[in-house]
Computed example of a mutant assay.
Amino acid sequence: MTEFAGNLRERVVLETRLDARDPRVSSIGRYSYVGSVWAALVPLAPAELTRADALSALPRWQVILRKREGVGLNTRITWRGKYLAIRAVIIDPRQPAQMLLTCEEIQ
């Protein structure tokens, strides 16, 4: 097993979506601060994910961080003024100490 801590060079903020609703029962879209962690970010090609049968052209990122409980599809990442929505979470049993996230920039 290789040590990956030296590759975690970017400071990112994790936020969880709140289940708040407005008077019309629509989601308000507020987030709550979870914590600040070290991560590695690598750009990905945008054409692999689809949205409503159309290829998404939004910038995508692969994010690697230490494994944490509670990180999932309702979590977003704030990094360098960008918001990244988590689209997939992979925990490789060969590397149980780390999480591999596929994220897409939110416009």
Score class of each variant (00 low, 15 high):
M1Q: 07
M1A: 14
M1H: 10
T2H: 13
T2E: 11
E3V: 13
E3W: 09
G6A: 14
G6K: 14
N7H: 10
N7E: 02
L8P: 01
E10L: 12
E10C: 05
R11K: 13
V12G: 04
L14C: 04
L14K: 01
T16D: 15
T16F: 01
R17M: 14
R17E: 15
L18P: 01
L18N: 09
D19S: 13
R21D: 10
D22C: 00
P23K: 03
S26T: 01
S27Q: 14
I28H: 03
G29R: 01
G29W: 02
S32H: 04
Y33W: 08
V37F: 15
V37C: 11
W38Q: 11
A40N: 09
L41M: 12
V42N: 07
P46I: 06
E48I: 03
E48N: 05
T50A: 07
T50P: 00
R51E: 15
R51G: 01
A52V: 02
S56N: 13
S56I: 04
A57C: 04
A57I: 08
P59Q: 10
P59L: 06
P59V: 03
Q62N: 13
V63A: 04
V63Q: 09
V63P: 03
L65W: 04
R66C: 08
K67Q: 02
K67I: 03
K67R: 15
G70Q: 10
G70H: 09
G70K: 13
V71G: 04
V71W: 08
T75C: 14
T75Q: 12
R80M: 07
G81W: 09
K82L: 12
Y83S: 11
L84C: 03
A85R: 12
I86K: 01
R87L: 14
A88C: 03
A88D: 13
I90C: 01
I90T: 14
D92L: 06
D92N: 15
R94I: 00
R94E: 13
R94V: 06
Q95N: 13
P96K: 08
Q98Y: 15
L101R: 10
L101E: 05
I106S: 11
I106H: 01
I106K: 02
Q107M: 11
Q107A: 15
